[in-house]
Amino acid sequence: MQTGNYSINEPSMSKLFDNLAEKGKTMYAPKNRGERILFQKVEKFGEIAGDYLLTANSAKEVVFPRYEKVFSYKKTQDGILINDPTGNPFSEVVLWGSRPCDAAAFIPMTNTFEKDYIDNLYVKRRKNLLVLSFSCNTCDEFCFCTSVNGGPGNTAGSDILFTRLQTGDFLAEIITEKGKKVVEENSSLFEASTAEGKEQSLAKVEPRFNQDEIQAKLQELFENPLWAEKSRACLGCGTCAYICPVCSCFDIQDEAHGSQGTRLRCWDSCGFSLFTLHTSGHNPRPDQGTRWRQRILHKFRYMPDKSKIAGCVGCGRCSRSCPAGINILDTVTAL
């Protein structure tokens, strides 16, 4: 659904930010933190980082926090009291400054949390989330959105997509009802426009592989020396999964204090040796090669087999940040 194109200038952008923040919405945006630019809470428009390709972390924390209370319990004389946080109100969140790949990641993420099992924590957060993305006018050698059905001006997953035009103004493409509401409530800041000039302002991201071909090849390659070869340097950390906007595995942990406690879900990673370790001591994925295979198969075979959408949006974060320099493209293009 595309509900129209508008234009908005730089001063009005800052006004738009203030208007949304004034309504009590929690604003998430790219902001400098130490040596990196990270998606984090911001209070003022001026705090937003100006010059960035992608944040070091992904934006998934707005719908899938790194740890989250599933319920808490307390033993009392009248029995066990359970507190279910899905009954609590969830704050309205604006994700400001996401890239098209960040936004596209909410689609496979939603498939995970809202298909077979409806996860109310995710549903509520996603419902309260407004995604205001900005097209990319630069890219780097790790970007490959165009190989996974995305692109530097892709609108999927965003409520509004802004593109900085060569004139200096922004094109605002309204993608959803939520986006339309933003324009209606701030109509003085927007002017009706056409999408002219968008293409010329976008980065050129060369296609690196054909996703359908990869999916087809992966039906056969389960036993292959390539997995061990390509993951030889892998250290078995959680970086690639934790900074990936699509990865959504978690671990259940209890924090108990006497007769009360909290059940939490915390991020987990298929790269960890403990991820599949059985109580018996047996580990069906005994080395980094089999773990790397799982990562690739899950993203490029199992997820598209199941729901037609890959589990990778081509942001390149995993490759940029891998402490061992492992580049996911090296594996995928070698298949």
Binding site: G34, N57, C237, C266, W267
Partner: peptide, 22 residues
Amino acid sequence: ELLEPCFKCYACRAACPLCYCT
């Protein structure tokens, strides 16, 4: 403040030659 962003990916541990405990 410094440790707040840490999401416990354990890359620091994985990259350390002396964190060899299994």
